[in-house]
Design a protein around this nucleic acid. Structure first.
Length: 294
DNA sequence: CGCCAGGGTAGAC
DNA sequence: GTCTACCATGGC
């Protein structure tokens, strides 16, 4: 099969390493010769970048240019995002100048994102990655690119067929993950949850969040991650342990309770507005790197 | 041994 | 609505 290789022009504020180190999508890993391997829209894709601001090289068995442009939001006016964030307050201004290369991914498969984030509860990134990859290897379809064997993420029908016991062998962490994933898959099958509909631009963040949170295993944090990274709701504001720590440090006014109430979501929207998702990612990176290199 | 990991749920007030 | 105990498990 012919391999399509191409180069995408990016703006000066694009850093592939940083974007994928933020690990919003758990399916990327290192390949050879500086290539990173991922699975996108049912295809294996290899990407690499010579340096910050350099064009993005990719190869795949099909043309993935439009998929990649959307995924990395290459067509966004990132300078405008930087300006808007910097205008919010001093904390945001500093974070933008520290992490100007950050992007919030636009993942094409909300179902994969939903399963991934359900399995993220009280778990480490390596284990979440392991769970997602196990599910793909066992239940997805095999795909090969240049000797790199990967698997697509399985449809919800495949996951439902697998059943609780099989899923229990594939996931790492809480024993309730399989139950939660299956219950959510069943809600989608029954039509109570329609991820494709929630991804439409006319569905607002608040509505998407409400619908998502009706699923077991999907509370505020998971719902916000799905909404932000896979349903194109840029005003979602995920609060994980790192973001919480940074909020306590930089925003004493933030209403942080033992559990994230509605008050926090309202506060975030008021403070960060349409850029809340970007703000959350900046705070996450700050806290995440602080814990990695103390 | 205690603490922590990109939280969520059930049950109590 | 808000707070608590509990859930699994390996690494430090």
């Amino acid at each position: 099969m012919a391999i399509k290789t191409d180069r995408l022009e990016v703006d000066q504020w694009f850093d592939l390493e940083l974007v994928l180190d933020g690990t919003q999508d758990f399916r990327w890993r290192a390949w050879k010769d500086g290539w990173l391997s991922g699975v996108l829209s049912g295809h294996v894709v290899h990407v690499r970048q010579a340096g910050v601001g350099a064009s993005l090289e990719y190869r795949a068995n099909v043309d993935l240019e439009s998929v990649l442009r959307s995924y990395f939001r290459l067509d966004d006016d990132i300078a405008e995002v930087h300006d808007a964030l910097s205008d919010i307050d001093d904390t945001m201004r500093k974070l933008v100048s520290r992490f100007p290369y950050l992007r919030v991914l636009r993942q094409p498969d909300p179902w994969q994102a939903t399963v991934s984030y359900i399995c993220s509860a009280t778990n480490r990134i390596e284990r979440i990655t392991k769970s997602v990859e196990n599910i793909a290897c066992e239940l997805g379809e095999r795909r090969v690119l240049s000797g790199d064997v990967r698997h697509t993420f399985p449809t919800r029908e495949k996951v439902l067929e697998a059943g609780e016991e099989n899923l229990g062998e594939l996931t790492v962490g809480l024993k309730s993950f399989p139950k939660r994933v299956l219950a959510t898959a069943e809600r989608i099958r029954a039509g109570s949850l329609d991820l494709e509909h929630l991804a439409q631009p006319e569905v607002c963040y608040a509505e998407a969040r409400l619908q998502l949170m009706a699923s077991p295993g999907v509370a505020a944090k998971v719902a916000d991650c799905i909404a932000l990274f896979a349903l194109d709701k840029p005003d979602a504001f995920p609060v994980d342990t790192y973001v919480r720590r940074e909020l306590e440090r930089c925003y004493p006014d933030a209403p942080l309770g033992p559990t994230e109430g509605e008050a926090l979501a309202i506060w975030a929207r008021g403070t960060f507005g349409a850029r809340a998702g970007y703000a959350s990612q900046l705070l996450f990176l700050s806290g995440y790197f602080a814990s990695k290199n103390p």
